[in-house]
Design a binder for these strands. Structure first.
Lengths: 333, 333
DNA sequence: TTGTACGCGTTATCAG
DNA sequence: CTGATAACGCGTACAA
């Protein structure tokens, strides 16, 4: 207790929070003593008195995913500037677990909640509403949702990407995607593909459609790619719902002695370093994870501070054209 | 206030924490009311009264790294079982930032601290000692350190791996490593290489040594690999201090039309999925990130609960032999 | 400018 | 088994 050392009690509080309103002499003395016995204010007591914890909670489906990791890092860094701390948890793509984690966060008295995606456990919005805690859905963009969201428009991104491939002359498309169960982002991407093809009177044949994996795995992508390419006729372009699936598709294509993009064009989603380092750099959609993290931090903070910041921000999802795409082989025959 | 609703105050506390010691009637009534107005206990108040926050803090150098992400996930999951929560922060390989983050955690009243590595800011151990907070160094194994540590023996792992290559007949070695600045794990790996070679009267020539990058980047590894292989004579085996560096080395080797392992053997550290999916699967050291996370959780919890668990656990760092290694070409000439 | 005294929501300690 | 009541450590009007 720094109080015992000095000769005050509330003054210490003032010295720590508003040093300027304390006399020079006392301030220096207090600081000296604080330094001397390594005193740190008790956050719990402060939270109790202030009614604010200075923490925001984020529940991500996973951390083993470059974009989420980057977003978490940026988020944490940005929160730290305003002396807020990040509580991080993983739902492992399970809505029940997500709900439990959020509940834990609320017990911990977080001042705000960050979620990924638009689809949550039905009780979750109710819970948040009742507690009056601000929340933001990230990695999605949905102006129609009552919750504020910050992220790319997944549907539009793949709509545009698909449209680009159609423009190159492709008519037969393959799709490799992880399971859309509890993953509205991937579902939106697939919808984008369907919509873009439908617009041109095209559709993905069932035999060219590979879906159902829970996680994104290079190995699974390889086997699915191989299966899809055994169909006859085979697709001339394969759309992959994330980066590792695209890597797997290309590696398998090369192993099958197929030329990329001569025999088959390949595109992915998410821009991680290896996308440019594989033998044929892969066309993909770049999602600015850092930017999402930063914007989310600012938005949640301003809402915590009472400013009605109903941000629904659409992050640029830039299509990065690389060597893995070209006109279909049919055109050359 | 559930109190106003029912007719008690401390009984609510008991009903929540030890339901069995409360009469059936009251218990059900209390639960009903709690459910009805969606009441959640205030963590700050509880922490203040209990003198325990129910949180442990972890400061990792980065999250964009498979092993750390996995360890964090396992750690968090395991802590949750005992109703503890994980506070996660990134130091970005900066000791000052690490110290600041730890300080923040202590203000937040964490019950334990998890760090990565053995080398920290000089003030850090003092701070922890003074606060009497249990801490664990992870991803390292050092029985001589006063702090308990859980992880692989980085030095031994690369000693053994190097020894294996020597056993295959190699005598000229290349090394590709990120900067060892503030990264004692990598430093230990390099020491392992030096020691193993020295044991056989060998050493890495300066021109075969590529070091200095801050982060592990596939692209940088490629350029360093290319430079190293331009030396004459060139190495017949290249040791990479992490997975992405090894990936880069192999991709560049293949781009240079070198045969792996015919012309050059390549080994890495860390076993991520792509290590088996590149054209030539890469020999590496498998670090069980999940296991580290789990063990760390258990150890820190038992120390928080007062059990003197001075764990210094050495995790198995298994050498996974794959196709990227073989005898040196000299042997065949 | 500084000190006093109360409240924040729980848990722990005693009586009853 | 249950109800008062005193901490827990800090912020904060209010008084000095």
């Amino acid at each position: 207790m720094a109080r015992a050392a000095g000769v005050s009690t509330a003054t210490v509080s003032r010295a720590m929070n508003q040093p300027e309103i304390v006399s020079n002499e006392l301030r220096t003395r207090i600081f000296a003593i604080v330094e001397h016995l390594g005193w740190v204010p008790d956050g719990a007591a402060r939270a109790l008195a202030t009614r604010r914890s200075g923490a925001v909670g984020a529940v991500f489906p996973t951390l083993s995913h470059g974009d989420f990791a980057r977003a978490a890092t940026a988020l944490q860094r940005e929160l730290l500037i305003e002396d807020y701390i990040l509580l991080l948890a993983c739902s492992e793509y399970d809505p029940d677990q997500e709900l439990r984690q959020v509940r834990k966060f609320l017990e911990r008295g977080v001042d705000g909640i960050i979620l990924v995606g638009d689809a949550h456990h039905p009780d979750l919005p109710i819970l948040l509403k009742r507690q009056g805690i601000p929340s933001i859905n990230t990695f999605v963009y949905d102006p129609t949702s009552p919750t504020s969201s910050i992220g790319p428009d997944n549907r539009k991104a793949l709509f545009d990407l698909t449209d680009y491939l159609v423009g190159l002359g492709h008519t037969r498309f393959g799709v490799i995607a992880q399971s859309t169960e509890n993953n509205d982002r991937v579902a939106a991407r697939l919808a984008g593909i369907r919509d873009a093809l439908g617009y041109h009177g095209l559709a993905v044949r069932p035999v060219h459609w590979g879906e159902g994996m829970k996680l994104s795995s290079v190995a699974e992508a390889r086997s699915i790619f191989r299966r899809i390419m055994q169909a006859s006729p085979r697709p001339t372009a394969v759309l992959c719902a994330n980066a590792y699936l695209a890597i797997g598709a290309e590696l398998e294509a090369l192993a099958m002695k197929l030329d990329v993009p001569g025999d088959v064009s390949i595109v992915g989603y998410d821009d991680i370093e290896i996308m440019t380092e594989v033998p044929v750099p892969i066309t993909t959609v770049r999602v600015p994870g850092d930017e999402i993290g930063r914007r989310v931090a600012r938005s949640i903070l301003s809402r915590i501070h009472g400013r009605m910041d109903d941000t629904v921000f659409e992050c640029e999802a830039e299509i990065v054209i690389r060597a893995s795409c070209g006109p279909p082989p049919d055109r050359l025959r």
